[in-house]
Design a protein around this nucleic acid. Structure first.
Lengths: 338, 338
DNA sequence: AAAGCACTTGGGAATGTTCCCAAGAGGAGG
DNA sequence: CCTCCTCTTGGGAACATTCCCAAGTGCTTT
C-alpha cells in the first residue's frame, strides 16, 4: 500500500503547522481566509483523505452503525437494509452489515465485530435460535444504542420496531373464515421468537371470535427450515379430518406449501385455501397467487434507523421502551378466492 | 460510551509495562510464562478488546475486505456475498458491504468509503450506468487489490470472476431452436456492460450456427428496469411477424415477460417459448416454470474472495489478468417444453 | 504610552497500539 | 573475576489525528 497524504504533508508543503491545517480541515473558523484557501487547494490536489482510524481514536466517533440480520436470502432483510441505509447515509453514517446465518454463535461473533468496530448504534433482528442475550446486553452496558426489529428481545428495555403481527394474523385468519373455511391449520414459528407468538395469538383470537374450536393437532410448531414443510403438509393432509385452510407464518413457507399441495393434486383454494405473511415479491407471481399480509418492509428499516439516530443524538433515552408498530394490509389473491 | 479496558489498564494493575502486556497479547514468545498467564487472566477478567483503530493506525492492517454490489433485491448478489463471507471469515477477515443502487454516483461514494476504511481488498460488480472507472483505478494506484465479478471492467488489468455467459446464452438459444422456435427475440442488457455483450454474442452465435438470419428488430436494448419490459413485450408481439421464442438477459426480466404474455392470453411455450438466465429461486415456482441457465452463484463469491486473499498475501500479482470462468447449466422447464 | 482585544498561529499532550532498542539479572565458560 | 549469552523487562518513538494553551501581531481605546 502506498503512502496516504496526511495533514503533516500538507503542513510541511505550506510551511505552516499541522494545527492550522487541522483547523481548516475540521471547519474551525479561526483561520485566516488566505491560509484556508491554500490548505483546501493543496488538500484537493494531493487527494487528502482523513485517516478515519486516527480520527476515531481521538474523537471516539466512528460514524458507523451496525446491523445484524439472520439471513439475506429472502427479500425481507435486504429491503430492511436498504431502508436503514437510506436514512443513515443521509445523516452521514456508514452501515456495517453482518449476517448471522440463523446461527447463534455467528450472531455472537458478529456482535463482537460490531463492538470492535465501535459502532455508534446497533440494529438487530436475532436468529431463530437466540434464547440468551448477553452478547447484546453488552452493548447496553457500554451505553451503545440498540434497536430491535422483527425478531425482538422483549426483555430488553430498548426501542423496537415491529409490525402489528397480531392484527395481521387475525385478519388473515378471519379472511379464511369468511371465505367459508372453518378448519384452519397454522404453521407456527419457533416459540422463543415473540413474533411467532404474536402471530399465533392473532390466529387464536380469530378462531375464538368465530367460535371455532382450537385443535392443537393442526397447529404445527415449525423451525422455519423450508424442507420441513413438505412432511408437515403431508401429515396434515393425511389426517382423518384434514384442514381446508392454512395460515403459514411467512410467505416462503406458504409458497412451499402450495407446491406440495399442488403436487398432491388438490385444488387451491377449493380444497384448501392458503394465506402467508409478508407479501414477498414471489407471492404475486406463483400460481395460484398467494393471499398474504403485506408489511412496509423498507419503512421498518427506515424507522429503525431513525430511532438509532435519535438514541445516538440523545434525543431519546437509551432505555426507552418505545415500540413502533407499523401497520399491515391484507392482500387478497387467488390462493383464497377464485 | 463507557471506558474500554486498555493495555495500559492491565499494565498498571499488574505493575508491569505496557510493552510486556502488548507482547503477551500479540503472541510474542519473549515473555515469562508466569507473567503471560497473569496478563491473559486479567485481560479475560476485564474483557479486554483490542482497539482496532489504534491497531490499524500503527500496523496499517485492517483485516477488512470491501464488497460493492449494484443491488440487493434479486437473490443473486446476496448469495454472492454469502460466498465471500464464507471464505473471508475463515481467513479472519471482516467484510464491509455497500450497495450502489445501480447509481454511478453512489458507487463512487461507496468506493470512497471503502478507501477511507482502508479495506485491504475490494470485490466489485459495477452499476449498469458505470462507464468510467477512475474511482476504481484509484485502488490500483494505491496498490489495493481489486477483483471484479459479474459486471466487470474489461480494461482494468485485475483478476475477474465470471460465468461463461457466451456459452450459456448459446445453449439457451440453441435449446429454443431445437424445440422448433426459429424466430427468437432477445432482451439485451446495456451494452456498456460486457456481460450483456457476451450474452448477446452467444445468442448471435447460436443463430448463426443454425443459419437463422439475425433480425435487429427483435434484439431489444433494455436498461434492466423491470417496468420497461411490459411495453417492450407488447411491441414485439404487435409486430407483423412476432417472435415465437424469447431469450431474456436475466430471470427477473423473463418472469416479467411471462406475466405480460400470459395477460395477453398467449400460450407458453406453444405460442412463444421463453428462456431466462440465472436460475433465481422464483424461476422454479412460477407458472409455467422458467427454463433458464443456472450459475453457481455462491461459488462466484467464494472464488472472488479466494482471489482477493491471494492478492493480499501477494501470492498473485496485483495486475494479474486471470479470469476465472465458472460453468453454467441449462435447466429445462415448462416455459420451453410441455 | 499602556492596556486590552481580536485574529491567527504554533507547540505539544493525548488517543491506544506496536515494535525497536537498551538494560538488568542470572548463569555458563574461560 | 570477567565476558558473553539468554531471558525478561521497560522506555519511548511512531502512527494521524484533535484540541487546549500559549504567544505573537496589529489595532483600538483610554
Amino acid at each position: 500500500m502506498l503512502h496516504q497524504t496526511t495533514i503533516k504533508d500538507i503542513a510541511r508543503e505550506l510551511n505552516i503547522s499541522k494545527s492550522t491545517v487541522s483547523r481548516v480541515l475540521t471547519g474551525n473558523p479561526n483561520v485566516n481566509e488566505h491560509t484556508r484557501k491554500k490548505v483546501l487547494e493543496l488538500a484537493q490536489k494531493l487527494d487528502y483523505q482523513k485517516n478515519i482510524f486516527a480520527h476515531s481514536l481521538v474523537t471516539h466517533k466512528t460514524n458507523t452503525i451496525g446491523i445484524i440480520v439472520p439471513e439475506f436470502m429472502s427479500s425481507y432483510f435486504p429491503k430492511v437494509i436498504i431502508g436503514v441505509q437510506n436514512i443513515a447515509s443521509k445523516a452521514g453514517y456508514n452501515t456495517i452489515i453482518a449476517q448471522s446465518n440463523e446461527n447463534f454463535e455467528t450472531e455472537v461473533a458478529n456482535a463482537k465485530v460490531m463492538m470492535a468496530n465501535q459502532v455508534e448504534g446497533l440494529i438487530v433482528s436475532v436468529t431463530k435460535e437466540t434464547k440468551t442475550f448477553d452478547h447484546l446486553m453488552a452493548f447496553k452496558r457500554k451505553e451503545i444504542p440498540i434497536v430491535f426489529f422483527n425478531r425482538i428481545c422483549e426483555d430488553m428495555l430498548v426501542p423496537k420496531v415491529v409490525v402489528d403481527d397480531y392484527d395481521g394474523s387475525f385478519r388473515a385468519v378471519e379472511h379464511l373464515i369468511l371465505t367459508g373455511k372453518k378448519r384452519i391449520a397454522h404453521l407456527a414459528g419457533p416459540d422463543n421468537l415473540s413474533i411467532s407468538r404474536r402471530r399465533l395469538n392473532g390466529y387464536l383470537a380469530a378462531l375464538r371470535k368465530y367460535n371455532i374450536e382450537v385443535d392443537d393437532d393442526i397447529i404445527i410448531p415449525y423451525d422455519l427450515q423450508i424442507d420441513k414443510v413438505k412432511p408437515i403438509i403431508h401429515n396434515l393432509l393425511d389426517l382423518p379430518n384434514p384442514p381446508n385452510g392454512l395460515f403459514a407464518i411467512n410467505d416462503p413457507t406458504a409458497v412451499e406449501a402450495i407446491q406440495v399441495i399442488k403436487a398432491r393434486g388438490l385444488k387451491i383454494p377449493e380444497d384448501i385455501a392458503i394465506v402467508g405473511f409478508s407479501n414477498d415479491q414471489i407471492s404475486g407471481l406463483i400460481e395460484p397467487s398467494l393471499t398474504t399480509i403485506s408489511q412496509p418492509v423498507q419503512k421498518i428499516g427506515e424507522t429503525a434507523a431513525e430511532l438509532i439516530l435519535k438514541l445516538i443524538n440523545k434525543e431519546l433515552s437509551l432505555s426507552s421502551s418505545i415500540i413502533k408498530t407499523l401497520t399491515t394490509e391484507l392482500i387478497v389473491r387467488h390462493s383464497t378466492v377464485r
